[in-house]
């Protein structure tokens, strides 16, 4: 692909995006408008994340791409291939080996380090969007730190359902100032957002970039008497036996029989390699012998 620049975008565009990223890091949780480009994949397929990754990638980087926690979901495969082709960087499925991880809907189970960047794909960056559809209004609300509407919504949830009825895209307050949408990660992942790695968020269609620098306070919104609660399916991974990871429910027969497995495939595999076996798993060495 010599007809395209390294990592597809031209250097001017990368510079524009990097400036937005730096501004985002300087004002944690603030949505920075940027001149998003049309990418060769559709809006909604991660164009924001792809542009942020393209602006951050260096030839020596090692890239990991996950969607729903897995490296081999179709769109993760497609984005990884895109960067293999346009940036010729090394790719990996191992969380610890990656220097840049692009993700959709999950934070890896394994703790990230200061040497890593986590890039999120964001569909709707505005946490207040479904309370107020107008961008002109929501920008004003952020500027005035007027988040009453959000608290009213959470309160109404509790009065109607006995609890806050938001299970993903659960809003957080960043460093005591901006309320931020963490992208549609399950709220199980929210507590991980206070981490050592840089977190960058790209929303291509909505033309916004925002960021959470390392060791930044990220507090999920709640009330004293109704504290935030991370939630996951009860049970253990059927393959590796983990009881502390986020689980996907897989339907396995026509009668609706189901099993639970780790959504983070790399984490699950490394646990199995280390000898952990779940109720329906087979030890790794046997599996290898069988195939």
């Amino acid at each position: 692909m010599s007809e395209y620049n390294f990592a597809y975008l031209d250097e001017q565009t990368k510079r524009m995006i990097r400036r937005a990223i730096l501004k985002g890091l300087a004002i944690p949780g603030y949505q920075v408008p940027f001149a998003s480009r049309e990418m060769p994949m559709p809006y909604g397929w991660g164009t924001g994340g792809v542009q942020v990754s393209a602006a951050c990638l260096m030839p020596e980087d090692v890239l990991k791409v996950i969607d729903q926690g897995a490296d081999d979901t179709t769109n993760a495969v497609s984005i990884r291939k895109f960067f293999e082709k346009t940036a010729n960087v090394e790719t990996t499925a191992a969380t610890s080996e990656a220097t840049l991880i692009q993700t959709r809907h999950r934070i890896p189970e394994e703790d990230l380090t200061e040497d890593q960047i986590l890039v999120y794909q964001v569909p709707i960056p505005e946490p207040l969007r479904f309370l107020e559809p107008r961008e002109t209004e929501t920008r004003k609300m952020h500027a005035l730190e007027e988040y009453g509407l959000m608290y009213v919504k959470l309160y109404e949830d509790i009065s109607q359902h006995g609890q806050i009825a938001t299970s993903y895209s659960y809003p957080l307050k960043i460093e005591g100032r901006y309320v931020m949408d963490p992208s549609p990660i399950p709220k199980f992942d929210n507590p991980k957002m206070e981490m050592s790695a840089i977190q960058l968020f790209g929303a291509g269609r909505e033309q916004r970039i925002y960021a959470v620098p390392p060791y930044t306070k990220a507090v999920s919104l709640d009330f004293e008497d109704y504290p935030f609660e991370a939630m996951k399916a009860e049970g253990c991974c059927a393959l590796c036996g983990a009881d502390h990871t986020y689980l996907d429910e897989v339907i396995i027969d026509d009668d609706g029989g189901r099993m639970f497995v780790c959504s983070d495939t790399d984490y699950c595999e490394s646990r199995r390699a280390a000898g952990h076996v779940g109720a329906q798993g087979t030890p790794q060495n046997q599996e290898a012998a069988a195939s």
Binding site: T73, Y168, P186
Partner: peptide, 12 residues
């Protein structure tokens, strides 16, 4: 596109 992580949390 796959949304099973979100859907799972909604299920719960």
């Amino acid at each position: 596109l796959p949304h099973y992580v979100d859907f799972q949390s909604e299920l719960e």
